[in-house]
């Protein structure tokens, strides 16, 4: 196990990047930190700056204005950084694909490590995604 993987799969610092979302995925992300699910037990915390982040959580579609910022925020992040697309909008564009303001899907801009569909995905699903990602990084089956 490399040093980077070892560091990356412990206490994850998560930066939440909401695009043109409807807020529901964002609220459910925060929900995983509050007492019912309480991911902070495992050292997973939200951070205020992308420069501290190990994981980027992408929610919502990215319109013409915010897509440019998405790329810039990704470039500012310290590498290696994991990217999880949360919700149907971030994964595929959902029902906004025909919108005049929808640009292209997130993975055309930045590399995405995990897709988590659902509108919105339940907090349990988000926790499962984290577990699967960490397991995959460590090379476990």
């Amino acid at each position: 196990m490399s040093f980077a993987v070892n560091m990356l799969t412990r206490s994850l610092n998560v930066f939440h990047l909401g695009g043109s979302a409807c807020n529901n995925c964002d609220i459910e992300i925060i929900d995983t930190l509050t007492p019912r699910y309480d991911l902070e037990r495992f050292g997973i915390t939200l951070v205020g700056s992308v420069r501290h982040a190990d994981v980027l959580l992408i929610t919502g579609i990215f319109n013409k204005k915010s897509a440019i910022r998405l790329k810039r925020v990704y470039q500012e992040a310290a590498k290696p950084v994991l990217v999880i697309a949360i919700g149907a909008c971030a994964c595929t564009g959902n029902m906004f694909q025909k919108s005049y303001n929808w640009n292209v899907s997130v993975d055309k801009y930045i590399p995405v490590d995990a897709y988590l569909p659902g509108c919105p995905p339940k907090p349990e699903a988000m926790i499962m995604a984290m577990v699967k990602l960490v397991k995959k990084l460590r090379g476990a089956k």
């Binding site: 695009g19 043109s20 979302a21 579609i61 319109n63 204005k65 915010s66 910022r69 029902m95 906004f96 025909k98 919108s99 005049y100 303001n101 929808w102």
Partner: peptide, 14 residues
């Protein structure tokens, strides 16, 4: 503002 505009009114016509 403008980071969140998705063109819903126009989409609704479809």
């Amino acid at each position: 503002l403008g980071y969140n505009h998705r063109g819903i009114e126009k989409l609704s016509e479809l």
